[in-house]
């Protein structure tokens, strides 16, 4: 079963803020704790910034998912950018091609419950879920 899908396009820097605010609001409506709302907003911020920095543009969408029992919030960050050469590298702490902390993707993996990344020369899609506890 699926809930409503909300999509936020990422074109400009301010869209990063817009995306994390709508994600946080949705998390709040679903009943996530303050800490989990912050985790979700932070994960969205990382994914949206990666789109803005490395792909130029893309989108972040949110949807409510029902698993076996709990409700979850699924976030899909999708772009048609250059893709990532070495997926295993970018999941290591401290790997960055832009002089960043390289904390983004490994951080998102720890912030959220489920994490999946698909990347090739046609772009990158990161799908993450946090389940209501």
């Amino acid at each position: 079963m699926k809930g409503a899908l909300t999509t936020v396009p990422i074109y400009k820097e301010w869209d990063i803020v817009g995306a994390r605010q709508s994600g946080r609001n949705m998390a709040k409506d679903l009943g996530f704790s303050t800490v989990d709302q912050a985790r979700i907003a932070t994960a969205i911020s990382e994914l949206a910034r990666n789109i803005y920095l490395y792909a130029g543009q893309g989108e972040v969408s949110f949807e409510e998912v029902q698993g076996d029992t709990p409700v979850g919030l699924k976030i899909i960050a999708k772009d048609n950018g250059p893709g990532i050469d070495q997926i295993s590298k970018v999941l290591e702490d401290g790997y960055s091609t832009s002089g960043g902390l390289g904390a983004g993707l490994p951080g998102v993996k720890r912030l959220m419950d489920d994490f999946d990344i698909v990347s090739n020369e046609n772009g990158t899609t990161v799908t993450v879920v946090m389940w209501l506890r």
């Binding site: 800490v35 912050a38 985790r39 932070t42 904390a103 983004g104 490994p106 951080g107 912030l111």
Partner: peptide
């Protein structure tokens, strides 16, 4: 620094 913020920073490995 809010508790929620300190927790997410640790998750980020910062």
């Amino acid at each position: 620094i809010q508790p929620a913020v300190s927790m997410t920073l640790i998750d980020l490995g910062i």
